[in-house]
Write a protein that binds this DNA or RNA. Structure first.
Lengths: 307, 307
DNA sequence: AAATGAGATGCAGCTAGCGCAACACTAGTG
DNA sequence: CACTAGTGTTGCGCTAGCTGCATCTCATTT
């Protein structure tokens, strides 16, 4: 009796829930995977349903099961697909800069992007000391993320206010500061080029971040250094300068002309010409007849086999 | 009227096909995504079907659409999930070693694993010169991959023969050498600790690889350096030694005792105690006191996999 | 303007996935 | 050793939800 589902298809929904459970908390202790019954109970679904879904997912390589324990965990296909994401491309480009930052101050450094109202960490490079919780692939509400201020720097105040109100569950304001304080800090990012935010998730760390701009001048990511709270104010600003400088360099690497951020005029509104239609005689026929080893040996420079 | 589908569920199948198309060839030119009609035509499916599927996938974050061009591309969720994969963990651990190799010889260096009968590249670090096709997330038949010999080093000859025959489409033998030659090279890996394979995909590069072993002594990955073909034989062997040494160090980092590879006796066949059932409606915390940090990326040798 | 094409949506019919229950299997228990 | 208490898989009717076709809107093109 679902009417107009604003949600995705039931099957996909289920599969995603399963994958999310398998992702666990990213804790090491979940590393050996999960059993069918456990997942089913966790999701409050039929065991049979989960069992079948997992078999399908396994056939697609989205999950794999340990041959010994017969437990399921996330599969190689996820990795293969993710590696061809725009995000992966961004990570590859950003890695040298993030590593440089981490090395320069011997602090944890991150690359983050904005996804909806959440900040997603794409890359984290640990400092040489300390155990370092890996935040890669983890999303955190904008308000609580150190990179949040840098990522929202270009937004106008109304939209920021709107987002903050929509995201804040309730009287958490005290923990993250008032709206006005937030807006003031955004203004600081715009002028100084970096943000220092000590009202974050972590009690022991202060986030120093700077926005990264793409070829259109839009903010696409943020570089962050997570500094131990014991550092003096002066050091924070020193680091801030370097982070901003590094982010600027990276931006240029992305094609951001030093012409200045966000020129008002629309540069090119040209919608790309229609893609060369795949009218060509089926490079891949609907080969339902799968099991045949169909990996085209002529992978000269196009490994576009079914992967 | 599909009888006993050895394939995955129809919906999932469709979604995976869509994702695979969106992954494109990883070419830069596909970066801005694909339209519904194009995808539909490519997959020979109804536009409506694809449209709806894409909306679902978008709601789940598996794909996202460019707000300007309204084209679809792979989404952040893939990245988020993949980052919590065992593979991602392996990449994080391996990165320093791979980078060290790339820097030491100023050649491209890779981390690869075996998945079914394909070799999947998890990490690629380019040399300082040259444009470098990123192979991350791409699979290649074992026979053609430089890392193949290292990854199969522990297999006994019959299984290798079987795999080779199953994978080789037809008279490609000349290109990759005979079976016996292959087996001889596997023997060389076992004694020398590294493989030199010049019968690979790429005409201009020679692969030098060495196996990486986990805490159980099983080969879980391979480190590879891709050397330009003009190098002399001596340099190849010099590099081989270093690669083997690096792989050994990494193996120890993974908990591989220097006790020697693959002791014959079964160490502990103990199947782990059942996970504490989430009988309580409480949110999280299986609170499993598992002392052993047993990660195990055990490679299921499952040639029946349809890739 | 009309024309083209891309993408979304309504609807009827039928397939494919759901829930329930019984099943095979292993591991603990006295 | 049977006995229990777990696990994961499978058979089978029933119906929810997907498929396919047609229609509709909205941009862009001629």
């Amino acid at each position: 009796m679902t009417e107009k589902p604003p949600v995705s298809s039931a099957g996909l929904r289920r599969d995603m829930e399963i994958l999310e459970v398998l992702a666990g908390h990213g804790d090491e202790r979940d590393a050996d995977g999960f059993g069918v019954s456990w997942i089913a109970e966790r999701l409050d679904r039929e065991k049979s349903q989960v069992s079948r879904a997992l078999r399908s997912l396994e056939l697609e390589g989205m999950v794999e099961r340990d041959p010994l324990t017969r437990r399921y965990r996330l599969g190689w296909r996820l990795f293969a697909l993710a590696a061809r994401t725009q995000h992966a491309r961004l990570v590859r480009l950003a890695a040298p800069y993030v590593r440089r930052l981490a090395a320069a101050f011997d602090e944890d450094a991150y690359l983050c992007v904005l996804r909806g109202s959440m900040v997603l960490t794409l890359l984290s490079v640990p400092s040489s000391r300390a155990y370092h919780r890996v935040w890669e692939g983890v999303s955190v509400p904008v308000i609580m993320a150190g990179a949040g201020r840098s990522l929202l720097a270009d937004w106008d105040d109304d939209r920021v206010r709107e987002l903050l109100r929509a995201t804040l569950p309730s009287g958490l304001d005290s923990a993250v500061g008032s709206e006005e304080q937030w807006l003031a800090e955004l203004a600081h990012v715009r002028t100084a080029g970096y943000a220092i935010s000590d009202t974050e998730l972590d009690d022991t760390e202060v986030g120093v971040s700077a926005p990264v701009r793409d070829h259109r001048g839009l903010i696409t990511a943020a570089l962050t250094v997570s500094v131990t709270r014991t550092s003096g104010r002066a050091r924070l600003h020193e680091i801030g300068g370097v982070v901003a400088q590094t982010a600027a360099e990276f931006s240029i690497g992305l094609g951001h002309g030093p012409a200045g951020p966000r020129p008002p005029g629309e540069p090119s509104r040209t919608r790309r010409a229609t893609r060369p239609a795949p009218s060509d005689p089926a490079p891949e026929a609907p080969s339902d007849q799968g099991p045949a080893v169909s990996h085209d040996p002529a992978v000269s420079h196009d490994p576009g086999c079914e992967l």
